[in-house]
Structure formats: structure tokens, C-alpha cells
């Protein structure tokens, strides 16, 4: 319990803005986890497919970028919703 005492003391100075900042940070960070895993899967699968069928490389390339951009956007949705929560 002694370890938690400084934390509790620090918590007495908590402001609304501080809590909102923490919420924004946690929200955007958690959102990035999913997008990160998704992007990893997309590129991994693409490498796998090209290794199996190298003649499809050009066709897969445009699909890969489409998937990458769609997945990457998910991280930004959480970021935008975090910003909305922060400023409202």
C-alpha cells in the first residue's frame, strides 16, 4: 500500500483535462493495436501468396495497398473519436 500512496496524492490534483488526455491516449493506443495486427496480416499474407504464385505479383500489389489503406484508417477513426471526446 505504501507504493500507492504517492499515486493517491498525485491523484488529488487530477483535472478534467488531464483525465481527457489520458482517455485520448489510451483510446488511440488501443485502436492502433487492432490496425497494427491487421496490417501485419495483410502484408504477411501477401508475401505468402507471392511466394506461392510469383506471377500474380502485380495483381496482388494493388489489392494489398487497398487493404493496407482500409485497415490503416481504422487507427485514425479511433484517433478522431478520441479527439472528439477530448474537445467536447
Amino acid at each position: 500500500m505504501d507504493v500507492l500512496l504517492p499515486l493517491a496524492q498525485a491523484a488529488s490534483g487530477v483535472t478534467d483535462d488531464g483525465l481527457k488526455s489520458i482517455a485520448l491516449g489510451i483510446g488511440a493506443g488501443l485502436g492502433s493495436i487492432g490496425a497494427g495486427i491487421g496490417i501485419g496480416i495483410i502484408f504477411g499474407k501477401e508475401i505468402e501468396s507471392v511466394a506461392r504464385q510469383p506471377e500474380l505479383k502485380d495483381e496482388l500489389q494493388s489489392i494489398r495497398w487497398l487493404g493496407f489503406a482500409l485497415t490503416e484508417a481504422v487507427a485514425f477513426y479511433t484517433f478522431i473519436f478520441g479527439l472528439i471526446a477530448f474537445f467536447l
Binding site: 490503416e72 484508417a73 485514425f76 477513426y77 478522431i80
Partner: peptide, 13 residues
Amino acid sequence: ISLSVRLFANILA
């Protein structure tokens, strides 16, 4: 919504 927010959020971020 997703079409506009995707572009806007990417560039803003």
C-alpha cells in the same frame, strides 16, 4: 462518413 474521415484523418494525423 468512412470515405471522408479516412482521407481527412490520414492527412490531419
